[in-house]
């Protein structure tokens, strides 16, 4: 059976975030380079039908940061959830390059593992790390994201049936109920139990109580899926599976997974975008912290390296004046 391949998060930084960083750096942070909490958000994976070719085109598996990332609560659009992050800004490009990135990454992943094991906390499952260096004079921002995900050994495998459209497994009624539940209260992870044509949606933390004596073929583990790729569930599922394996080892040899990708109930004649698949894996050791991966690769080179946003064309007063008419 093929190994499940997860679509990694891609960072999307809105220009307003860099504007806010500039302001913070000058007015608040100054020379401080301590670690700050920030918040990003992700929403369901989107695809668009190309009118010329009639094909569906998948947009990225994005985690975005806006200008309000430094605030305690960010404004979320419908069907999107917040992700907490650690943010560290360096004062010089040398510091940025010389930073002990492995140590930062390990520190974060250890924290996440601790929160999972000891606090049964699902809010850490999509934590991320962002390091930056802001060249304020040139309006250039160097940055590097990491989205730690715990590696499962042995790896999760998808059943022979593969990933299929959710409406092959669940009825339109059931999907509509799930949609309504998520629309009212959008959560990154949820549980679904089916009985007949109806479904109930519950919290992941209450796995045992919620599922109780529900037989395993009526249990579904769901998550808000930022990926829109047909064969690849999004990154958050990895840590959710790690979480479930730690806390519910007895039930975790196989899961029926719902990748939720519908922001709206599809109009008549259109299909649901959510995906469904049955994944399984062998026994694994849950006592020790598994290794984690997740540094973002550079989008053009696909290498592990930092990237840079050049905001000069949109921020530099001299260059803005040049194109004013």
């Amino acid at each position: 059976m093929p190994v499940v391949q997860f679509a990694p998060f891609s960072s999307l930084v809105q220009p307003s975030f860099w504007h806010e960083l500039t302001r913070m750096k000058i007015d608040v942070l100054r020379l401080s380079d301590e670690t700050l909490p920030i918040q990003g958000s992700y929403t369901v994976g989107r695809s668009i039908r190309d009118r010329e070719t009639g094909k569906d085109i998948v947009l990225g598996c994005n985690l975005s940061l806006g200008g309000d990332a430094y605030e305690k609560s960010i404004q979320l659009s419908p069907m999107s959830v917040a992700a907490n992050g650690m943010f560290k800004n360096y004062n010089t490009i040398e510091d940025f390059k010389a930073a002990d990135k492995s140590a930062l990454f390990n520190e974060l992943s250890t924290k996440m593992w601790d929160a999972i094991v000891n606090h049964k906390d699902t809010s850490v499952l999509s934590k991320f790390l962002l390091i930056t260096f802001a060249d304020l004079k040139k309006y250039q921002y160097y940055y590097w994201f990491a989205f730690p995900a715990f590696v499962s050994k042995p790896a999760w495998e998808i059943s022979e049936n593969g990933w299929k459209s959710a409406d092959e497994e669940l009825s339109a009624n059931q999907l509509t109920t799930i949609h309504q539940s998520l629309y009212d209260d959008t959560v990154p992870f949820f549980l679904v139990k089916t009985s007949g044509d109806s479904v109930q949606v519950g919290m992941v933390e209450k796995f045992d109580e919620f599922f109780g004596d529900v037989s395993s073929e009526l249990r579904i583990v769901g998550f808000l899926d930022p990926s829109a790729s047909a064969e690849n569930p999004g990154w958050p599922l990895r840590n959710l599976l790690a979480f479930l394996r730690v806390h519910f080892p007895a039930q975790s040899s196989s899961f029926r997974v719902l990748c939720w990708r519908d922001s709206e109930i599809p109009s008549a004649g259109k299909a649901w975008k959510s995906r469904f698949g049955v994944i399984s894996s062998g026994e694994s050791d849950t006592a020790t912290k598994p290794s984690a991966v997740g540094w973002e690769r550079h989008p053009t080179t696909n290498k592990l390296s930092a990237r840079m946003a050049d905001l000069a064309p949109m921020m530099d007063p001299a260059r803005l004046a040049d194109q004013a008419v």
Binding site: V4, Q5, F6, A7, K55, A155, E231, L304
Partner: peptide
């Protein structure tokens, strides 16, 4: 600033960026 040694080897469970081959289901990256 490339640091390939940050992560050991390739992770088999990470979906690689698509190259050329269209994925199944008529959905394109």
């Amino acid at each position: 600033m490339e640091e390939e040694d940050l992560e050991e080897g390739d992770d088999e469970a990470t979906a690689a960026p698509k190259t050329g081959v269209p994925s199944a289901g008529g959905v394109l990256d």
